[in-house]
């Protein structure tokens, strides 16, 4: 995509317009003073297209405000971590975004459409905090059900089912009743159900709870692969080590965003070496 950037020479303050395509880095010489510098046109998939935008989003349960004037933007292809202790409003935020709760004030936009919006839902994957599955159906039947809900063709489903079952390591359990699975296995299946239809935006509410460390690493590998393909991934967690793997995190406390940035930025900003410490410094409570 062609664009034009107006840049100011840091030396003589002369302003000039530089044309360029996204992804290009152009070496520019100032026509007035001869200063040489680089102008960067960031690639499109490098987090410049806003996908999720919250403006003054507020959700109150009666007199209790669970989400308080939240402003944040998540860009295409990001893995965004909503971080905060229990009760800080992570789930509530996600539920508003998925159209399950109507906001008390403010608004939320996804892919340029204001939520709630039924047509948007086809492009969204949602893994609720509770493993929302049909316990009296098999693993396969649950997946087939969601494939039907998301209008997948039979062939699409068969190949995706295999991919997903391999990814969450449940291939052997395809025909087992969900009620016979352990908590962690149900969690994995729930994740598979959310990702089955290859959504553009996924909301994962604590997807790694009860998942062993090895598989957790696999999960994160998969999340990063998703975002590399341009899928926007929003994950809530209260594990600090996981937050470190996010492209960007937003720290929530009492329904308010108290800090936002890449894990490195936050650590630099607070002069700490771990996110845990950074969070404490930024006024958070202890996480777990």
């Amino acid at each position: 995509m062609m664009a034009e950037k107006r840049v100011q020479c840091p030396q003589c303050k002369n302003i000039q317009a530089i044309p360029g395509a996204s992804g290009e880095v152009i070496v520019v010489t100032c026509p007035v003073c001869g200063f040489q510098g680089k102008v960067v046109f960031p690639p499109l998939d490098q987090k410049t297209i806003p996908v999720i935008q919250l403006k003054q989003l507020t959700k109150a349960y009666g007199r209790f405000t669970a989400v308080d004037h939240l402003n944040l933007t998540v860009y295409k292809g990001e893995t965004y971590g909503l971080l905060g202790p229990n009760g800080s409003g992570k789930t509530t935020t996600i539920k508003v975004l998925c159209g399950l709760l109507s906001p008390t004030a403010g608004q939320a936009m996804i892919l340029g459409q204001r939520v709630p919006c039924k047509t948007l839902m086809q492009k969204i994957g949602y893994m609720p905090q509770e493993t929302a599955l049909y316990l009296d159906n098999t693993v396969h039947e649950n997946l087939a059900f969601f494939a039907g809900i998301y209008s997948m063709t039979h062939d699409q489903f068969l190949s995706q089912e295999q991919t997903m079952l391999r990814f969450v390591d449940l291939e052997r359990w395809r025909d087992a009743l969900v009620s016979t699975l352990s908590g962690g296995m149900r969690h994995r299946l729930s994740l598979a159900c959310a990702l089955l239809h290859e959504p553009d935006v996924v909301f994962l509410d604590e997807p790694t709870v009860g998942v062993d460390p090895e598989l957790r690493a696999t999960f994160w590998g998969f999340f990063h692969a998703l975002s590399a393909k341009g899928c926007t991934v929003v994950i809530t967690t209260h594990y600090m080590d996981e937050a470190d793997r996010c492209g960007r995190v937003g720290l929530l406390r009492n329904g308010r965003l108290i800090a936002e940035g890449s894990p490195q930025d936050l650590k630099l900003q607070t002069g700490t070496t771990s996110l845990e410490d950074a969070f404490m410094r930024l006024g958070g409570r202890k996480m777990v």
Binding site: L100, Q122, I124, Y126, P128, A132, I149, Y150
Partner: peptide, 12 residues
Amino acid sequence: NGTLQRLLASPA
């Protein structure tokens, strides 16, 4: 079980 919520967040 939360399946209803999940469905309401789906195209169904």
